[in-house]
């Protein structure tokens, strides 16, 4: 049994981290260009962690996570832009709820239709679906077509650094809630069922798991969080364009998941921070971003195939979990 302390520890850590970052922002110790980056990092972390649910925990390869990001960005963006009769604060909540719901339904419906597909076949279909959504968006009235949706009211208003503090704060809160929910899902019996389907679908069926439904619901939940990330994107950038959601976005997020380790939430978070921040850190090298991705990906795959590195990783993770357990004074 988990102690209450153990359950709350990560949330306390998240609050502490928030305080530290806030201090760095308010005192302008963190330069403007980095402050600007923080909401993007939060957004991408939600994307990576939710994609990890599908790729790492369910074991299905998706190359179309950006489709649900787009759905969320447009649903949320249009609500923020057009439903001006609703007070702004309420409108943000409505936008998030609606985007999450629509992305959930579309994600679930999509996998329902292609539920017989696995592996490479599913990967290709998800890739196509991403492009399909992008094309559909262009012809829906009110989306701004190819030119995109502009003038979305944004939370980030005011002078520097207030503007960035606001943008970061709400993005951070939503990110923490998203991660918290996803981690709790993974640790529940449903999470165990998801991993069982990944490890062996026949055995999963033999213990009574409805394999198709499990895949559909997991995919829908991942889509839901991508949809929420989409609202963050729309509300932070004030403009969304179909070009913002092409397959490169899906691939970038997939790279974050693979780099961080499939089935490793902490890894996804760290990999996302590194991959989003790295180009800024190496500002001059920004045009080599994709090159860095490629090299990093190859290096990680080679490292992960190396038994000595895997053994090292296992030792480190065992030590870490032992440490966390000692903090919470043991479990079981």
């Amino acid at each position: 049994m988990k102690t209450r302390l153990q359950r709350l520890l990560p949330l306390a850590g998240a609050a502490l981290l928030y305080g530290v970052i806030l201090l760095l922002m308010a005192t302008k110790v963190l330069p403007r260009s980095y402050q600007q980056m923080l909401p993007t990092i939060c957004t991408y972390i939600i994307m990576a962690v939710s994609l990890n649910l599908v790729v790492g925990f369910l074991g299905d390869l998706s190359l179309g996570h950006a489709a649900f990001y787009a759905v969320g960005a447009y649903v949320g963006g249009m609500i923020l832009r057009y439903l001006t009769a609703i007070p702004f604060g309420v409108r943000v909540i409505v936008a998030i709820a609606a985007a999450a719901a629509v992305a959930f339904v579309i994600g679930g419906a999509f996998l329902y239709f292609v539920r017989k597909l696995h592996g490479d076949y599913l990967a290709i279909v998800t890739l196509a679906f991403g492009e399909f959504v992008r094309s559909i968006v262009k012809i829906i009235p009110g989306t701004g077509g190819s030119a995109g949706l502009t003038d979305i009211p944004t939370i980030a208003a005011g002078a520097f650094p207030i503007k960035y503090i606001k943008a970061f704060s709400w993005s951070y809160v939503i990110m923490v809630i998203s991660i918290f929910l996803i981690v709790n899902l993974i640790r529940s019996r449903h999470g165990r069922a998801i991993m069982a389907v990944r490890d062996n679908s026949i055995a999963a069926a033999s213990v009574g798991i409805n394999v198709s439904r499990c895949r559909i619901v997991t995919f829908a939940i991942a889509a839901l969080f991508a949809g929420i990330a989409g609202v963050l994107y729309a509300a932070n950038t004030a403009a969304v364009n179909p070009a913002d959601f092409d397959y490169n976005v899906s691939i970038e997020v997939l790279v974050m998941v693979v780099l961080g380790g499939m089935g490793n939430i902490g890894g996804s978070i760290i990999a996302t921070i590194i991959l989003v921040a790295l180009p800024k850190v190496l500002l001059d090298a920004a045009q080599y971003r994709l090159l860095i991705y490629a090299i990093a990906l190859i290096a990680m795959m080679m490292l992960n195939a190396n038994p000595r590195f895997t053994a090292f990783k296992r030792r480190v993770s065992e030590k870490t979990s032992k440490f966390v357990k000692s903090l919470g004074r043991g479990r079981d």
């Binding site: 019996r189 165990r192 069922a193 991993m195 069982a196 990944r198 490890d199 062996n200 026949i202 055995a203 999963a204 033999s206 213990v207 009574g208 798991i209 089935g263």
Partner: peptide, 22 residues
């Protein structure tokens, strides 16, 4: 099932718990 279809990446404990999934 044939061929020892266990959940290879989960712990022994988690495998057993999944047996009681229903």
């Amino acid at each position: 099932p044939e061929g020892r279809r266990i959940f290879a990446e989960l712990s022994v404990f988690a495998n057993l718990k999944l047996g009681a999934y229903t």
